[in-house]
């Protein structure tokens, strides 16, 4: 038993992804990913907004209001993708009991909630001039609203327990069970009669003009990079909060002049 445990430990220890499962190891890596992703997000946002707002032509049916698409579609996609990522890390946390997995899941939730909110808000402002209403209880809109509430429920549940492990697991359960909603959102425009238009982009083709599609995809990658950067920043803070009693965290604040500097600057206020 002990020998096999030792063997499996050796097997795992040799793999880089197990090494980075340790919060202290992941912290500096997350910092580098964060910086890189902020830069990518900014460059792509400027490019995408330039193409979408200044170069893409007026839509022959909808006029200028269609330009909401450059943020509405990326936000809607990210709301779904982030939820799936959250469910994934929650499941990993459940199976392996790794601390960092739950932190990753927690770090994704607020950004996902913001994406869902932006999707609903921009959708309402797009719906009014094109459908004549801000809101309608149809399948796509209702399931997206449910997604938003799932995020809120997850965040509330994670914070509701005094015992952190219980909060982690209860929230993870919501994330995993709620994931069934995501494919329902995606296919809702096919399965039900809905005011919402069908997918403009699907595997094997698109019904959009090339420059519009290009701008939308660039904006999507920008949102993607932004979400990763925000999640990395949040997970680093979570690591600091949860590992504050460890020697590693102490050495971090002692060694890192920027951390010490930031902290003393705060204290001086």
């Amino acid at each position: 038993m002990a020998a096999s445990e030792q063997r499996s430990h050796d097997r795992f220890a040799g793999r880089w992804f197990w090494r980075y499962a340790a919060p202290s190891q992941f912290y500096p890596l997350a910092g580098r990913i964060e910086i890189l992703c902020w830069a990518i997000a900014a460059v792509l946002a400027v490019t995408g907004l330039y193409l979408g707002l200044f170069r893409a032509p007026t839509d022959f049916q909808q006029g200028e209001v269609y330009r909401i698409i450059y943020i509405h579609v990326p936000a809607s996609w990210m709301a779904m993708i982030i939820y799936l990522a959250m469910a994934f890390w929650s499941a990993v946390g459940f199976v392996f009991g790794t601390r960092l997995s739950f932190m990753m899941s927690h770090a994704l939730a607020p950004t996902g909630a913001i994406m869902a909110f932006v999707a609903l808000w921009t959708g309402a402002l797009w719906g009014r001039p094109t459908w004549g209403t801000y809101w309608v209880w149809d399948a796509r809109l209702t399931t997206t609203l449910i997604l938003f509430f799932l995020y809120i429920g997850y965040i509330a549940l994670a914070a509701a327990f005094d015992d952190r492990r219980k909060g982690d697991r209860a929230a993870a359960l919501i994330a995993i069970v709620g994931a069934v909603n995501v494919p329902i959102i995606y296919f809702s425009v096919k399965w039900w009669n809905t005011l919402h238009q069908g997918a403009s982009v699907r595997p094997g083709g698109s019904s959009m003009a090339t420059i519009m599609l290009t701008a939308m995809m660039i904006m999507t990658f920008s949102f993607w990079a932004y979400s990763i950067a925000a999640a990395m920043r949040r997970v680093r803070t979570l690591i600091l909060e949860r590992e504050r009693d460890t020697a590693w965290a102490r050495s971090l604040i002692g060694a890192s002049t920027s951390g010490r500097h930031e902290a003393t600057a705060m204290k001086a206020r």
Binding site: G259, E262, M266
Partner: peptide
């Protein structure tokens, strides 16, 4: 709003560790 909240939370976490460990 998200960027402001993220930065504040990070500063708060660093400050908490620094207060636990006076130099």
């Amino acid at each position: 709003a998200e960027l402001v909240v993220l930065s504040r939370a990070r500063k708060r976490a660093l400050l908490a560790i620094a207060e636990d460990n006076p130099t």
